[in-house]
Nucleic acid binder design. Structure first.
Length: 299
DNA sequence: CACTTGACCTGTCCGC
DNA sequence: TGCGGACAGGTCAAGT
């Protein structure tokens, strides 16, 4: 989501919404009246992110809040005409934003998983596609967003400059009797960490994901904190973790998973010791570990 | 209260 | 090829 934000923040501000189409209230719960009053005619001011939610601030004092969940995509298509281009030869369609893993989507949206289509006066479109309908896009008063249930319970951003290793340990220690993996995935402890980065950071810190938080020493937690920051920064630099559905902000696939050391690498050798990586189930999630580097905790 | 499990959806993959 | 079941990057509600 951070890579999507990085791309869209250079593309959306200044765009004025001209029309919107949407289907089910599950993907877009607002009424046509909300759309008419707070979205149509509004200009995009800012693009931000909090946890896994993208925020598009509008001149109407409302914002679009977007959560992609497992299979959501945001695809920005700027339909440009040859007549408007004097400086260079350009493609008739340029696509930006997060979206489909290959270029076959160009010119083919909307499709059957398109939940919302926002059209701008410039002729550009922002498509919200979501195969599984877990994700959502909602129009909310900008000032109210921090007071929503979802935002109120979020923990700190792991890459915030003010967030230290001891802050991290303090947060984790609020969940002493759960597995470290469940604690990492709990958005009220730390915001924004999902299954990929929890597995990757635990491998980096040589911690078995089933280890109870209270069994971890302060120095282990500090190592985990640094490994978590490392994998998050690396992934942002590589354009995110595109696998099936996500694209990075410039319309390219993110490449982080090529650098992943355990995630979806079961059956392959651990890059540190060569022992075959296995996949297990922890905290109800598929979990990838090196059984040699990440020893099972004694109970 | 802390913690875990199932449900929400659709598509794909794997074994029979 | 067809069919059934398990599984998928996240979050809730309901359960223990």
């Amino acid at each position: 989501m951070e890579t999507i934000k990085i791309g869209l923040k250079h593309l959306l501000p200044g765009q004025v919404v001209s029309s919107v189409t949407f289907d089910s209230p599950k993907s877009f719960p607002n009424s046509p009246s909300d759309v008419k009053h707070f979205l149509i005619g509004a200009k995009v001011l800012l693009v931000k992110r909090r946890a896994k939610v993208l925020l598009i601030e509008l001149s109407s004092k409302y914002s679009l809040a977007i959560h992609l969940k497992m299979t959501g995509q945001l695809v920005f298509i700027n339909h440009m005409t040859k007549s408007k281009s004097k400086l260079k030869t350009i493609k008739t369609t340029e696509r930006f934003g997060a979206g489909h893993p290959n270029n076959s989507l160009i010119g083919k949206l909307p499709d059957k998983s398109t939940r919302v289509n926002i059209r701008f006066e410039s002729g550009a479109n922002l498509y919200f596609n979501d195969q599984r309908k877990f994700g959502w896009m909602k129009l909310l008063p900008t000032a109210e967003i921090p007071n929503t249930d979802f935002f109120k319970k979020l923990g700190p951003e792991p890459l915030a400059t003010s967030f230290t290793a001891s802050d991290f340990a303090d947060r984790m220690n609020k969940r002493p009797n759960t597995s470290i993996k469940a604690a990492l995935l709990d958005q009220s402890v730390i915001a924004g960490v999902g299954n990929i980065y929890s597995d990757e950071s635990l491998w980096g810190a040589k911690i078995h994901p089933a280890t109870l938080v209270r069994k971890l020493s302060a120095s282990k937690l500090e190592t985990l904190f640094h490994e978590l920051q490392y994998v998050l920064k690396l992934s942002i630099n590589k354009g995110g973790s595109t696998d099936k559905n996500y694209l990075d902000a410039q319309g390219r696939r993110g490449s982080y998973l090529r650098f992943a050391r355990v995630f979806r690498r079961d059956g392959k050798p651990c890059p540190r010791c060569g022992v075959i990586i296995i996949k297990i189930r922890i905290a109800g999630r598929g979990t990838h570990i090196c059984p040699h580097c990440q020893k099972e905790p004694r109970t």
